[in-house]
Every structure is written in structure tokens, then in C-alpha cells.
Design a binder for these strands. Structure first.
Length: 105
DNA sequence: GCAGTGACTAGTA
DNA sequence: ATACTAGCCACTG
């Protein structure tokens, strides 16, 4: 099932540049779903692995990788991000001001 | 149709 | 810094 809003979410995620990240809340707001960050997570969850959507560039508001039912994906996501030059700090977090796609200001 | 779940977030303590 | 809470709403059984 692919509603127009889901399509919108995917379009926004696709527009995140290489080496940059965005939060679920940002994606929701840009896709016309202010305050519905959970729906972004659900939309990405419904994505097939073969998708060309850069889902790994979406992280939570703390700069951490959100764990799915299968924790294996956290490793995959981290690896994908590191291959794009994203550096994690000592707490396994991404310094948001350094890599955030769009400023929160 | 109702209740539980979840790749979330901002607020409060 | 961590822990808990309310709000959020599509999806699932």
C-alpha cells in the first residue's frame, strides 16, 4: 500500500544529500506530516531492501541509529553511513550539527 | 471496531 | 547525564 504521503516521505528521504543525515521529525515535517515522526519510521519499515531510498540517512533526534526488531540493521546502517564519511563519536552518536541535512534553526 | 505496537519527539523531573 | 510521560497515528490481529 503506498499512499501519497508515503510517496512524499520517500521523495524527501531521497533528497538527502550524500554524506548528510536527517531526523525522523524533519522528514515528517518536510513531507507534510508535522509531529508524526513515527509514521516516517513506519514508512521506512515498509521499504524493501532492494529500494533505492537512502533510508540509512534517517536517524533519530538524538543522533543515534534507531534499533529495529532486528538489531542487525543498526550495524548495516552504521557501516553505510561511515562509508559516506559520517563519523560517530565515542557514544556511538552522530554530532547532529556537523552532518544534519538542514539546520534546525 | 478495539487494543496493542512501534525505524519518534519534546517535555518534565 | 538518565528515566519516565504524554502525544502522536498507521498498521496489525
Amino acid at each position: 500500500m503506498s499512499s501519497e504521503l508515503y510517496h512524499n516521505i520517500y521523495a524527501v528521504v531521497k533528497s538527502i544529500p550524500f554524506g548528510k543525515i536527517a531526523t525522523y521529525g524533519q522528514i515528517a515535517a518536510l513531507a507534510g506530516l508535522p509531529g508524526r515522526a513515527r509514521q516516517v519510521g513506519y514508512a521506512l519499515h515498509a521499504l524493501p531492501d532492494s529500494s533505492d531510498i537512502p533510508w540509512h540517512r534517517v536517524i533519530n533526534a538524538k543522533g543515534e541509529i534507531s534499533i529495529r526488531s532486528d538489531p542487525l540493521y543498526a550495524d548495516i546502517q552504521r557501516h553505510l553511513l561511515e562509508s559516506e564519511g559520517v563519523v560517530f563519536n565515542s557514544q556511538n552518536r552522530i554530532p547532529l550539527p556537523d552532518y544534519l541535512w538542514m539546520s534546525r534553526i
